[in-house]
């Protein structure tokens, strides 16, 4: 039962993340919302898998997948946001501050 609850929470977080992917205005905000919510949602699903299978071969596989998911998702987000800035993606017009601009030039 605990496994089902964890998986439901994970799917709920994923829904928030994908909603952010549609609604937010520019690439930086989208990446931020989606990376956070979807990564933690999938980690929650994998925790549910761990609870379901118990300690054993399958459970340890889920446990190993969680840190891999965290590191790859965050590093990919850094690379993407940096690439997007160098590519020339504009910040949204509601933005108030941009300290990075003079550093790039």
């Amino acid at each position: 039962m605990a496994a089902i609850i964890l998986i439901s929470v994970g799917v709920l977080f994923n829904i928030f993340g994908c909603l952010g992917l549609i609604r937010l205005p520019d690439v930086y905000n989208r990446l931020q919302a989606a990376t956070k919510c979807v990564t933690l949602g999938c980690c929650s699903i994998l925790l549910g898998v761990l609870v379901h299978f118990g300690i054993g071969g399958a459970g340890f596989r889920a446990l190993v997948a969680i840190p891999i998911l965290f590191f790859t998702a965050t590093v990919a987000a850094h690379a993407l946001v940096r690439g997007a800035y160098h590519f020339g993606a504009k910040l949204d017009k509601r933005s108030v501050k941009d300290d990075y601009r003079e550093e790039v030039k």
Binding site: F16, L24, A33, D92, R94, S95, D99
Partner: peptide, 18 residues
Amino acid sequence: VAYRVLHPAMPIKPGIVK
């Protein structure tokens, strides 16, 4: 994130800080 996404007016004030 859930609060900012679900709020109808989207309370965001983005920027890059050092």
